[in-house]
Every structure is written in structure tokens, then in C-alpha cells.
Design a protein around this nucleic acid. Structure first.
Lengths: 190, 190
DNA sequence: GGATTCTTTTGACCTATATCAAAAAACGAT
DNA sequence: ATCGTTTTTTGATATAGGTCAAAAGAATCC
């Protein structure tokens, strides 16, 4: 879904508003694995994923990559706490495939929030959407068995699960790659 | 912190705006454990906690209470996904002490969002604040040991940790009460 | 199209944390 | 203060899922 359609769907902007808003976004073609945000930097951009899948991840104390969130097509992506709190990012952000994204800086976004009531509304809706998404994940992680978490992933992100490496999904679900491999194997048998 | 001060701090409303907005909130004195939202109901109210501590929790398949979030003084509280998605609540919501809260219905809130650009901004700020809070918790839960999660709780919610029963904190942190008890004991020794 | 690198699977073993059960301590109401 | 209830602690035991290491399978590249 193009960013234009996406914005229109969420809030009924006039053509003029929409044009103005879109003019503040920059289209970027980024290649797989190219870092968009690095752990430790303040992330000052918000991205819309038009094509591709993004993720944010961090390196734990053993140097292992832990994926925190995936961002599919038609989603806004950023290093959440860093962007909102202007704090050093806990995460790296990258695309997992060659991708087309649209970026806007925090400053410009703030200006748009000031300028348009409807834009502020858009911001609120995106925030709450992201919030419910994270709450769902928290539910899944907190008290479910590894198998149940995998099943959650299957229903919640069927599009993503077959497009990204197993190890990333395992870390996203809070389990080791070996465990996920074994669960998946068992699943196929039943 | 009173709701009036809280709102003023976040967005610079005029006196008239503030008065109008506050007139849509209802002050409620609720007693400890009185259910505000029940699992399965759609939660259509947002609460501001002026005095007391609230939580939402659910009963898992074994009938055990699992606390998902605490809401301290000066926080907005609701059953997040239920309120935003108008879906049946996964959680019960209650106060853990006799409390003073201020409630507003979703409808009235929406009207205020329509009416005031600044109100929409307030909604966005609250949403993002809640979002970063949940992201922090997710970080803590996903890949930390039980001990590390307890330490996270100590720094993030020092006010709450000594005011609510151990079992609730344990379930909030995704561990058994016994484990938390043992961790705490060890901590005291060092 | 074979060599190289990356990803997934499999097996053996280990550990953090769960569970169960019961004692001890703290709390609350009379 | 005392009885009953709730909460916390402690000990013994069980297990889900982790770690390590190596093999098997895919993907990528000159």
C-alpha cells in the first residue's frame, strides 16, 4: 500500500493537506541490511514501509542479535523509545530485503502536528495502533509456552513468518533458534 | 498530582479549554478490589489515577491471576486494547487501595478530540508515553533472567514495589512468587 | 557448477525456574 | 490480644527450554 493511500485511509485529509504532508516525506530506496539506525544513536526519523520488511534488534551481552519488532508493509517504523524520548536507541533498525521506504524527520513531523489538527489525530491513531500491537506481543511473551508463542506468531504475522530467517523469529519470540526449529518440526507432523 | 495539574503540565490549555475538558471527567471514589472492568466486557472508559494504585490482570487457564500492568498515581489507566479496539477486555481492572480516580467515556473523549487540536495532542502524548512504557517492559521480559527483571522493577517502579503484594509483582514480571521471594532474599544478603 | 558462506536441524547434556506442599509470618477483624 | 485469613518463605523435586557442537541443507558468488 502506498503511503498516500495509507494516509487517506486513516484520516480524511483534503487533497491540499495531503500534498503538503507528503511533501515532507522523502522516498528512500534502501538495500538489505543497510543500517538505518544504530544502537546508541538518537533516532530522529520515522519511516513508512512501502515495500519490504524491517526490524529492530539489539546485540545482547553475548553479542547475539535479539529482534524486538518486525515492521511489515504498510507500517510505520522507528526505534520507538528513542524517537519519542530522544534517547540513545537501544536498537539497530534495518530492512531485511531491498526496500522502498518513506522517511520524515521528527522536526518536520512536529511542525505538521502543529499545523494540522488532523495530523495530530493521525499521530495519535498510529501511536495507539502500535501500542496495541506491543501489548499483544507482551501478552504472548509473558506467560505462554514456546509453542504457544509460535502459534501466536503464525496467526498474527503469517506474512512475515515465512519471509525472514528462523533465528530472527526465534529471538523475536524469546526462545532459542534450536527450540523454534524443534517446535516447527513437531507442528508439521501433526 | 491532581488531574488539573497533570493536564496543564502536558499541554498549555487555556483556562476555558481546561474547564470544558475537566467538566467531562467524573470524579469517582472507589474502594480496594472493586472491579472497574471485567474480563470479557468492552472497556469504554479511560481513568486518571489521582490517588491509589491500579492494575489490570487476567485469570490464566489454571485460574491464576496474572498482572499485566500497574498504574501509579498521575497515570491514565484503562484496558488498553479493549478501549482502543472496542474489543472484549482480556483483563480485569481494579484499584489495589481505596482510591480516587477520574473517568471519561470513550465517546466524550472522542468529542473532545474533535473539538480541540490540543486535546488530540494530549491523546497522542499519552499514547506514546504508554507505548514507551510497554516497550520498556517488553525489553525487560523478553530476554532477561528473573533476577534482572526484578532489578528493572526496582529502578522503574520503586514506588510500586513496596506497596503491592509480592505475588502480583511476580506475575507482572513473569515469574512465580516463590522465585521472586528467593531473589529478594538473596538481594538483601549482598 | 563447485566452493564458500549462511541457515537450519539434530543430539546430548545442563540449568534456571516452575510446581507442589507445608511451615512461618503478617495482617485484619472482632 | 486472639483467631482466622492472606501472604511470604522454605525445601524438595520436576521440566521446559537453554547451550554446545556438529551435521545437513540452502543460498550466494565468482
Amino acid at each position: 500500500m502506498t503511503i498516500t493511500d495509507f494516509l487517506k485511509d486513516l484520516v480524511d485529509f483534503s487533497e491540499a493537506e495531503l500534498e503538503d504532508i507528503l511533501s515532507h516525506f522523502q522516498k528512500e530506496i534502501v538495500s538489505k541490511s543497510q543500517p538505518l539506525v544504530k544502537q546508541g544513536q538518537v533516532c530522529r526519523k520515522l519511516y513508512y514501509v512501502e515495500k519490504g520488511i524491517g526490524r529492530n534488534y539489539y546485540l545482547n551481552s553475548d553479542g547475539k542479535e535479539i529482534t524486538q519488532l518486525f515492521f511489515g508493509e504498510g507500517r510505520f517504523m522507528t526505534s520507538l523509545e528513542s524517537f519519542f524520548e530522544e534517547s540513545p536507541s537501544l536498537y539497530n533498525v534495518e530492512m531485511l530485503e531491498d526496500a522502498e521506504i518513506h522517511s520524515i524527520s521528527k522536526n518536520e513531523l512536529e511542525l505538521l502536528f502543529e499545523k494540522y489538527h488532523k495530523m495530530e489525530r493521525l499521530g495519535r491513531l498510529l501511536s495507539t495502533e502500535m501500542l496495541t500491537k506491543v501489548v499483544h506481543k507482551l501478552n504472548a511473551i509473558q506467560f505462554q509456552t514456546a509453542k504457544e508463542r509460535y502459534e501466536y506468531m503464525l496467526t498474527e504475522y503469517p506474512d512475515i513468518i515465512y519471509r525472514v530467517p528462523l533465528g530472527m523469529i526465534a529471538s523475536y519470540l524469546g526462545m532459542s533458534q534450536e527450540t523454534l526449529s524443534r517446535i516447527r518440526k513437531k507442528k508439521i507432523r501433526d
